[in-house]
Every structure is written in C-alpha cells, then in structure tokens.
Design a protein around this nucleic acid. Structure first.
Lengths: 241, 241
DNA sequence: TAAATAGTGTCTTTTAGACACTATCGC
DNA sequence: GCGATAGTGTCTAAAAGACACTATTTA
C-alpha cells in the first residue's frame, strides 16, 4: 500500500472527489415510435442543446433515490420503472467540472408520458431513430416533432443509444416490455410495443405462443372497449413466482 | 428549479459529495470451477472478512482507469478483460463514510490467475459456488480452498453474485467466454469454460455447431501438444467485423 | 350482413439435443 | 493394434415463421 493510499483510507475527505450525478433516459412510445424526454439547456456550456433530466446525488441519498427525486421534480411523475444503465465517467464529459453520472433507464406508459408532458411543460418528447435493425450497435439520431435532428449536450446521446440497446436486448427475456403498457393490455398492444422497440414486424401466432407459453400473462376475463370490431381479451402480468 | 438546485449548479463544491470507488470482481477458472480473487481485511470495520480488491477514483482519473490501476497495483496484472457491472450506492454499505462504488467484472485466463496469485501473494482464489442452475437469481457462497464458507465484507458478496449472473447471461451471445482462455484454444477447452460458468454439461455436437456457425472462430492450422491421444485443432477469435 | 380485427390450425423451416459412429494421434 | 479423445452424420424433438382459416364483435 502506498502512502497516498494509506492517507486516503485514513482521511478520504482530504482528497478531492468527483461530483456524482444521475441522468434519466425516460422512454415512452408515441405513434408506435420510441420517444425520449428532453429539455433544452438555456445556459453555457452547451446552451441550446438538449439534455436528459438529471441532478446531483445528495450525501444522504442513494443514487436510486436521486433518480426518483429527479423523476418527481423534473418530470412530474410519482413513479416509473427505473433501472440502472451505466455509469459514465469520462474526464471531459462535462467541461465545468469533474462529474461522474449514473444513467438510469426509465420506462413510461402512454399515460405516464402524457402526464410528464403536462406537468413539466418544458419537456419535449423527441423521437429516437435507431438506424440499425437487430441488436448491432450504431449511433441513434434524436428527432424533434418536426423531424429535424436535435443536438444533444454532453454524452447524453450515448446514454440514449445505450438505453435503446439495453431495451432491445432485454425485451424478450425480461419484463421490461410490460413497463410500457398499462396494467391491463391486449396481446396486440404487447406486440405493438415489441415491434416499436425492435423496429421490426413480428409474426403474430409465434408471438402469441411465446408470450402465453411463458406463463407470465394472466387473462382477466375482461375485454377492451371502444372498438368497432371484435374486442380483444385483456391480460395482466402475473407476479413473479 | 429550487434555490438549493440553483446553488448546487452554481457552486457544486459547496455541497458534500459521496466518495467514489471501484471494486473488482476478478474471476478465473480453477479445476473447472469459477474462482474469485479476495483479500482479507485486517482492520475495522469488517476485520477478518474478505473483500474484493478496490480503490478510490481519483479526481483526474476515469473509473475505468481506476479499475485498471487497482488491477495493476492490487492484483499485479498489466491487463485483463474489464467491464462495468453495476454501481452500488446504499447509504450504509460502508459504515465509515458514504462511498458509492462502481463494481467491475474482470476475467482472467489461467495464466493471468496464476500471475496474480504469484505477484500479489495476499490474494486468495476462492471458489464461487452458485447454487442455482440456469439464470435464476440466488445467493452464491464463496468457499475457501479448504471448502469452508468465507464471510464477505460490505456488499461484496452481492457484487460477486451479480458478476456470475451477468457472466452467465452474456456467455452465449457475447465474447466474454473467450476472455477466460488463452489466444489459442481448442473447442473442448471452450466448452469446458462454458460448462464451468453455466454449471451444467452441454451437448458436444450442438456446441461445436453453434460456435463454428457463428463465424467468430478461425482455425489456426495448429494442434494442441502434449496429449497422449489425438490432438485437437487450435482456434483463435476472429476480430469483430 | 358487412367490416374489421381477434384468435387458431397446421405446414414448413430452423435449431437444439441425443447418440452413435468414424478419424486420428501417441504409445 | 490399443486406448483415448477429436470430430461428424443423422435421427429426433422443440421452437419459430408463414399463411390461411375460423370466430366474434359493432355498426
């Protein structure tokens, strides 16, 4: 052990520390396309560019709690599916000072997305265009409602790209797909979600078989309402056993 | 934006920050069993318990660089496959003070494992016993060479459990399996690695088909040496296209 | 009854597991 | 030639894709 290490363990407060932050990649679906919630920076650095909602991790706060606080204060949401994505720590990722940021993936239902846009009117839902099919990596482009490309601040474009990659990878072996749907949903809605995330059409009978054989879906006996045709059965997710 | 948030952005140094550290889950194989490198704490808190090698992230150092430094200084290794695992931030994870730690998964070849044990004689290679088959979660137990269970300090047992889970999950769609093997290896050695990580025997023809059809393996034309029977062909990993 | 989508039966294609067989090396 | 493992051919079982068909509801 070097003397520096000894001193560091003895009195770590004597050493300068990076600041610790969280950034939230809040993803929902609109018009069968993935969108991410962004806000525009109005000051330097990167003024005019778009950023993810984020905030510093307090000394008496876990990163998860900080993510929940940002979700509440900056997106107006009481809760959402949140999971840790990756910790970004490049030295120059923020020109103001050394900030290490833990990126979180948040998944919003259609209602959650609408609520966030209503309660936090400075947020914009920008379409995420993923140029690749399958799971191979590649740069994503973020498009405004008017279809022009948005410039992202800091490394936030990397965070969004990683979020989409993770979402695609986890979609068919985990429960993340359900986090984008309300409590009761039809199999067609579930398939629409999967197709929107993967960016590719799926085979209907095979999809239904896979989902039902997995044993995680429970029929509710209810039917969707408001259709002018045969209403589909509503399912819900069975709590994990 | 609250006043506190404004002030924080204006002068973040005014706010107390968590310390940031890295911990390394260095995994190798011995006798076809996964082992992890641990060292014994000789001081409070958790004196006598076993910990992962770790260290603080310097103010002018990325977390990856800190992980590389710990690998070098505390395990005597110049390099290894390192990937970020998860950032642990529970308030009470370290009773001394608030420390958020980024856990890294490191994969060692047989030679790398031997080198670490030689250059860092205080390290012990403890067998990881994973009580579950497949990918369902569950608590792992860490066993000393004498087969008794070791008490881990802090949340390091969680880190090891998560590392094994991640390793199992990524094994058959990524290149992590190759990181446990030398540059040239036989298909049988590769299958042994997969069986050791998954904890279950695999079908030989199916395994060979999958690996060869994937197109990531290039035959070298060389054969293993030192066997008293038919020597197997040596393969190497083809650089990603 | 027409329109529209829900939901299914079944054939084909692909992929994985089982198992036995042949091939090749050192001794 | 013997022993032992490398490597493969092939049958079977399971899963996914294709496609057409039936079922059910509203208007």
């Amino acid at each position: 052990m070097t003397e520096a290490e000894f001193l560091e363990e003895y009195d770590p407060a004597a050493y300068e520390r990076p600041a610790l932050a969280v950034d939230l990649v809040l993803i929902g679906l609109r018009d069968a396309r993935p969108v991410v919630l962004l806000l525009k920076r109005d000051r330097l650095p990167h003024a005019g560019r778009w950023t993810l909602p984020g905030g510093f991790v307090g000394i008496d706060e876990t990163p998860e709690a900080a993510a929940g606080r940002v979700l509440r204060d900056k997106a107006g949401l009481a809760g959402a599916h949140l999971e840790q994505l990756f910790t970004f720590g490049a030295l120059d990722r923020d020109p103001r000072m050394r900030i290490v940021s833990i990126a979180y993936l948040g998944l919003l239902t259609e209602a959650g997305l609408a609520e966030a846009l209503e309660r936090a009117p400075f947020l914009v839902a920008a379409a995420i265009h993923v140029p690749w099919a399958g799971e191979a990596g590649g740069p994503v482009s973020i498009l405004s409602p008017g279809r022009e490309a948005l410039a992202l601040a800091f490394d936030h474009a990397d965070m969004i790209a990683l979020a989409m990659l993770r979402l695609r990878g986890k979609l068919d072996y985990s429960d993340v797909g359900f986090a984008l749907l309300p409590e009761h949903f039809t199999l067609r809605q579930l398939q629409d979600v999967h197709e929107a995330i993967l960016g590719t059409p799926l085979n209907k009978p095979a999809f239904r078989r896979r989902m039902l054989d997995r044993g995680r879906l429970a029929p509710t006996g209810l039917r969707e309402a408001g259709t002018s045709f045969r209403p589909a059965e509503l399912y819900r997710v069975q709590r994990s056993t």
